[in-house]
């Protein structure tokens, strides 16, 4: 552990100092990094069961192959993030196999079922774009060198996911009929889901130290704008309705619905007409977790304990 104070380390990293390991960190830095990496790792990990459930019924061998290529990447990315956590004193074993489902820190979107190929396609188009928006910012700005290096691989692969999402959204939208309808329905619930993913608006955000320690560079609202800047034009080009538009006067994207608002996970329906709710109500919904939380976590943990028992007997 470093002898510096948090403030001294903040000044150093703002000046370009790169942290290489626990020996360079203050406790404050380690904690902030731990929180960030845990969210990153859990998000990558839980995307795998969520994508897999839909991948099993993808319409052809080729689509099942591309979905598994994405799942393979997500698992590899999760593993890399858990290994980084292990390097700073956390246990990968405990994090992956020793936690209860509600203890995972992934976004609410990955507690939802993906019911068909169109939803998987929009998930790679929207959710993975949110992931890459967050991680590109980390890659550009992070003061933690091992993470910066790891993100080169992750960035390369996530761009494949994006293209996959885009190409397939285009194909299904062009096909018309049921295919187009299913894509639009996926957009209807997944667009607001991703918007919410970026978290509290800046004027309400509690101080986490992530910006001070240069673990990221952009604020939640800025990241939301970056995501919309690529997603809204894509939807417009494909003739899909997305509830946001470019506002000339404000020179930014604005949402066409009350934000945040309530979500019915069973109906996959956002209650736009019930108006804005408090962020406390959002946190409460997140805390309860979505319908697939336990199933997804169980699917990842199911054989580790057995095999471990066998091998140590």
């Amino acid at each position: 552990m470093s002898q510096l104070t948090d403030e001294e380390l903040m000044r150093k990293v703002q000046g370009g100092y790169m942290v290489e390991g626990p020996e360079d960190m203050t406790e404050g830095y380690r904690k902030a990094l731990r929180v960030q990496l845990t969210v990153q790792a859990d998000t990558e990990l839980m995307s795998a069961p969520s994508y897999w459930m839909a991948a099993r019924h993808a319409p052809s061998t080729n689509t099942q192959v591309s979905a598994h290529a994405i799942i393979q990447d997500e698992l590899a990315h999760a593993n890399i993030a858990y290994r980084l956590l292990e390097d700073i004193g956390e246990s990968k074993e405990r994090l992956v196999y020793g936690r209860q489902p509600y203890e995972f820190k992934h976004p609410y979107g990955f507690d939802q079922p993906l019911d068909n190929w169109a939803e998987l396609v929009v998930a790679t188009g929207f959710f993975d774009r949110a992931g890459i928006t967050l991680l590109s910012d980390v890659h550009e700005n992070t003061s933690y060198a091992p993470l910066k290096r790891a993100l080169v691989k992750i960035g390369m692969e996530e761009t494949f996911h994006l293209r996959h999402g885009e190409v397939w959204m285009r194909r299904l939208a062009k096909a018309g009929g049921e295919a187009r309808e299913l894509v639009q329905r996926a957009v209807d619930w997944m667009f607001p889901m991703t918007i919410e993913w970026f978290g509290l608006p800046d004027d309400m955000k509690r101080h986490s130290g992530q910006l001070d320690f240069k673990l990221k560079g952009l604020t939640n609202d800025q990241l939301r704008q970056v995501w919309m800047a690529s997603t809204v034009p894509l939807c417009e080009e494909l003739g899909l309705d997305a509830p946001a538009h470019w506002d000339e006067d404000k020179s930014e994207y604005v949402l066409d619905y009350p934000f945040p608002c309530q979500y019915d996970a069973v109906e996959k329906h956002w209650a736009f007409d019930e108006g804005e709710i408090s962020w406390d109500a959002v946190f409460e919904r997140w805390k309860k977790r979505g319908p697939m939380n336990e199933i997804y976590v169980e699917s990842v943990q199911r054989s580790r304990l057995d095999v471990q028992r066998w091998l140590t007997a």
């Binding site: 080729n62 192959v65 591309s66 290529a69 994405i70 494949f160 293209r163 996959h164 190409v167």
Partner: peptide, 11 residues
Amino acid sequence: TACPCMDFIRE
């Protein structure tokens, strides 16, 4: 044989 980018390369 299962290169997931096949489609994109052809395109």
